[in-house]
Design a protein around this nucleic acid. Sequence first.
DNA 1: CGTAATCTTGACCAACGTCAATGTTCGTGG
DNA 2: CCACGAACATTGACGTTGGTCAAGATTACG
Lengths: 241, 241
Amino acid sequence: MPHAHPSNSPPHRDVASRRERAFRALAAEESKFVAAMKRSHIALRAGEPVIEANAHISALYVVYEGWALRYRTLRSGARQILDFVLPGDWVGLPSVFFGSSGYSVRTLTPVTLWVLDPSRLRPLLREQPGLSWAFLKGRIAEQERADTRLALLGRLGASERIGYLLLELRDRLRARGLFRGQSGALPLDRALLADAVGLSRVHVLRAMRALRSRGLADLTDRILTIPSVRNLARFSGYPLK
Amino acid sequence: MPHAHPSNSPPHRDVASRRERAFRALAAEESKFVAAMKRSHIALRAGEPVIEANAHISALYVVYEGWALRYRTLRSGARQILDFVLPGDWVGLPSVFFGSSGYSVRTLTPVTLWVLDPSRLRPLLREQPGLSWAFLKGRIAEQERADTRLALLGRLGASERIGYLLLELRDRLRARGLFRGQSGALPLDRALLADAVGLSRVHVLRAMRALRSRGLADLTDRILTIPSVRNLARFSGYPLK
DNA sequence: CGTAATCTTGACCAACGTCAATGTTCGTGG
DNA sequence: CCACGAACATTGACGTTGGTCAAGATTACG
């Protein structure tokens, strides 16, 4: 439940075209869907909560711009990042079906959200059955990515996990036009990487040092550089299309 | 691609009623859906492949009876079990949307599959939009379980992972009427548990010995006994409803 | 019976976590 | 412009968890 500045005005014009493009790159097929449910925008600053795990609230958003985290906090206090949420990604679907979701989401950068009306999802699926195909397809693709992350944590070593994660992020950003060439900005620190790949902060450092010394990847000052995608992919078992 | 005995006859009468009940317990809302796509039955023996990762084939099944494994094999040869597939579960959805799936599936016990016509999925969603809601709900629920497994591998120790997995299996079996009281049969050996929770075979043994000596769980001769679900749940962080 | 899996155990080793100390960066207020 | 503190980055020493290897015990099955 974002306690933030609701707004009905679209984002500023000057940067809108670039952003629009980035957003549409992914959501092309779902955009009609989203438009029909859209209620307003919300602008959030970095580090704000979006939804809380197990809260009995139905809320549905699509990220328009910015990065967010989807994570769980365990009894022990440890945090597992389930996914990085990028423009075009949905937030809150489980809460529409089950009244709450098992994950929390918080912003990592300033984020603009589209606020959707959860109660419209069901009628929309009924009225516009053609859209449900694209929607389902998106959910299935997400499941495949979840499978990948599971195999990663279960069966790969530290450096390989990180290498894989970085490549996946690179590709997701490229699909949105947010990453070109060898390097680009990622708003990630060590703690985040650690909680995403299931390692300690310190060990992430060691693994990244190993990657850097082999010339495979470098993440310094929030700038990711991958000199050779081929090499890093080979090293970490990442499939190249 | 099961090279197996196709059959148009329904499963034998003598045990059918018990099986039907078990199956319907879960798939109640999806059963109309399945019925409309169903083409035939296939009976497979234990250990047979159902679908192969990255094979360019669209195939769609629902498990009617028996256990199967959904897994990935990594470059190193290591295997990560993504999920245990139980009666009522779908197999092959990604292949319908993307032409192939990233996971393989093979049977663990003798299995009866319903063979569905993949090409009917899209028109069915269009013609019977009411069904897509239940279907989507099932996919979202699966995603939540995937999130749980990820947090498990990323942030819990060996005994807790195993305890959690056993409780989850118990609950899934109970929902299908396949597990009652304190103990029940699971067709699992150590190697399977190990590949499911991301540990070595030997270490699974150690962790299970720890669980047994604390009186939390025992899996001997393929019979699982959980003296106190409360205790094991508390130990492994499993949420009780 | 005999062969092959699987289970079990112990000894040892590698990967990863924890802790603590020392930079370094960066924002804040004087 | 500087001083200060907070948060994050980096490193080393050391402890723990889990992996590997090998051998013997047990079971399954022909």
